[in-house]
């Protein structure tokens, strides 16, 4: 395989002593789309914010984030600032609050063009119009003079995308870009991201709770749990035949069209980062937990070619859903589809 564009090695992040990311290794290759999935609080956002050094100073970050052989975590800040928006663009969940409410779109978009493309004056206006066209905002010339509150959530997210690609990055990190939007708009934004990736040949990291979206959009998937990657591999085989019980659990929690089949939420909750269980962090919630799971925390190991899993019992048969929870239903553990 070609050399990766970005390689995260042994990334750890802690907030006031509470670990949020506990040793993530992840590579993104040129042009590929990588999905990051996992429950809330599993460290998906923090991983990529840390990679771009966008976390507040109280976050203790260690490890390496290599781009062209340079470690972003060790570079002087001005060089990292040149990477942000220039080599790696990022968009966030809620476009309404991610745009500055008191500045016109022209200014917010123009800043990037001045910063990374060295444009000025009329060239900025022309390129800004082109970008708004590219992301599908009608009447681009007029929209440049709008403020964020004058546009819909979907349009604001398109503006965010235009800003993120304005510096012609090689990688776009989209952190739940559709969570705050209406369902119909979600599909449009995802289509836009996929189309832009094809046209511009950039890599995409798509952080999402939505396994369906990731399965559709991404080539490879990393499943995160409690600050670690627990399974990684090409999207289709990973979702068809997961190797880690947590991935299996996420899939079983997906609503299905078959109303007769009951939805099985993963029992229990994500562990408190200050009180991690011994051994595998997922063991307390795992239907397959065995004594071996309580020993050392299992490392991410190759199972099949291109597939990685961090399960202490790599030979489990996960083709079928796990045994049902006890007959007396625990309300937290079961929900009706």
């Amino acid at each position: 395989m070609a050399a990766p564009l970005v390689r995260i090695e042994g990334l750890t992040v802690a907030f006031d002593g509470a670990p949020a990311v506990r040793g993530v290794d992840l590579a993104v290759h040129p042009g590929e789309a990588v999905g990051i999935v996992g429950e809330s609080g599993s460290g998906k956002s923090v991983t990529w914010l840390a990679a771009l050094r966008l976390l507040p100073a109280k976050a203790a970050v260690a490890g390496r984030v290599l781009l062209d052989g340079r470690d972003l975590l060790a570079l002087p800040l001005p060089e990292v600032e040149a990477v942000r928006g220039g080599r790696i663009g990022m968009i966030f969940q809620d476009p309404a609050s991610a745009l500055n409410p008191v500045l016109r779109i022209r200014r917010q978009l123009g800043e990037v063009l001045a910063r990374h493309r060295g444009l000025s004056g009329a060239a900025i206006a022309a390129e800004a119009r082109r970008l708004l066209d590219l992301v599908g905002i009608p009447d681009a010339a007029r929209r440049l003079d709008s403020y964020p509150h004058e546009m819909s959530g979907g349009q604001n997210q398109r503006v965010m995308i235009a800003m993120a690609i304005a510096g012609q990055p090689d990688l776009l990190v989209a952190d739940e870009p559709t969570t705050a939007l209406d369902v119909t708009i979600q599909a449009q934004i995802l289509d836009l991201l996929a189309a832009l990736r094809r046209e511009l040949g950039m890599a995409l990291v798509l952080i999402s709770h939505d396994l369906g979206v990731v399965a559709e959009t991404c080539d490879r998937v990393a499943v995160m749990y409690a600050g670690r990657v627990v399974e990684m591999g090409p999207a289709e085989p990973l979702f068809d035949a997961p190797r880690h019980p947590y991935t299996r659990g996420l899939l079983d929690a997906l609503p299905t069209l078959d109303a007769a089949e009951r939805l099985v939420a993963i029992p229990g909750v994500v562990p408190d980062p200050r009180a991690m269980p011994p051994g595998c962090a997922f063991a307390p919630r795992c239907a397959h937990a065995a004594p071996v799971c309580l020993g050392a925390e299992p490392a991410l190991r190759a199972t099949l070619p291109g597939r990685w899993s961090a399960c202490a019992r790599p030979d489990l048969d996960l083709a079928a859903p796990p045994p049902r929870p006890p007959a007396t239903p625990a309300p937290a553990a079961e929900a009706v589809a």
Partner: peptide, 9 residues
Amino acid sequence: RTASAKGLP
């Protein structure tokens, strides 16, 4: 954070 993510010093 968006402004920082755009690469502004």
